[in-house]
Design a protein around this nucleic acid. Structure first.
Lengths: 144, 144
DNA sequence: CACTATAGTTCGATTGTGGGACTATGAGAA
DNA sequence: TTCTCATAGTCCCACAATCGAACTATAGTG
């Protein structure tokens, strides 16, 4: 009998499948120049814009990496950098209308996945899953 | 009120935290030249060795990528390539004693994480989590 | 003012990734 | 047998992601 796969690996498998589906949905809708890492960073942007270092923290990447990702997102027209009025050193990364057009598609695909999972597991087990994952965040997410 | 994070993102957060801990444990034990992608590939190797294309399927990467990863693992002394007696085209990727020395450490850290999660969630919720994740694998893992 | 901390960028190197083309071997059909 | 096609793996090449280190500009503090 094979060894039980660790929970973390099972999570990895499921989360990768979901990420791939969301990215495919975006690509199919014409947003075909965005990558997984870029979309992950973009999901951290607040409506009024967010500093790059905050985005880096949220995505748990170095700020040099965030700079590179924002460079590409900016070149592709998804975000723009505007001065931060409250601090001359900082700039706010803000979504453009292009990103705001893509966002509902990503959310819709997320919701679709969530619904499929609920249908597969049944409502009760799915609720347990969400409870467990939310609780785990306390001890696995340093930047919640 | 903030939007609920999708389950898949919560899974991503937790699985990344676990992967990082396992990798750190290996590094601390002197296996400091292995990377996450490499260890992920290595976990797919059967005791008697596994073909490269099978490893690529299991890790869901292209076989060129698997070739590159095996090259590095081989150079670092974790795996070796031996001819496949049943097919002259194929070769079997096999763990060396170095990899077999690292494996229990990785498993121990996995078990430790699993135990901590269980302690944090309580046994009942943890069981529900495992049930849900195992069931989800049916619809998210193309190579189970 | 001087000193230190912070926000962001640039440079350079490495890893991971896959498309395309290629070689060698196996398998099956004529 | 020979021809044809499929498969296993590799090589070449380009690009994305990543981060350490060093740097510039601005802020804050005594």
């Amino acid at each position: 009998m094979a060894r039980q796969l660790p929970s973390s690996l099972l999570m990895f498998i499921a989360s990768r499948a979901a990420a791939k589906r969301i990215l495919d949905a975006l690509h199919d809708a014409g947003f075909d120049d965005v990558t997984i890492a870029q979309s992950r960073l973009m999901m951290g942007i607040d409506p009024d814009g967010t500093r790059l270092s905050v985005l880096a923290d949220r995505a748990q990447i170095a700020k040099q990496t965030a700079t590179a990702l924002v460079d590409k997102l900016e070149k592709a027209g998804y975000v723009e950098r505007v001065p931060d009025p409250s601090d001359g050193r900082a700039r706010l990364v803000r979504m453009t209308s292009r990103a705001e057009a893509a966002l509902p598609l990503a959310r819709a695909e997320e919701d679709r996945i969530e619904a499929e999972w609920r249908a597969h597991l049944g409502p009760e087990l799915m609720d347990h899953l969400r409870d467990a994952l939310s609780a785990l965040r306390d001890i696995t997410d340093p930047y919640q």
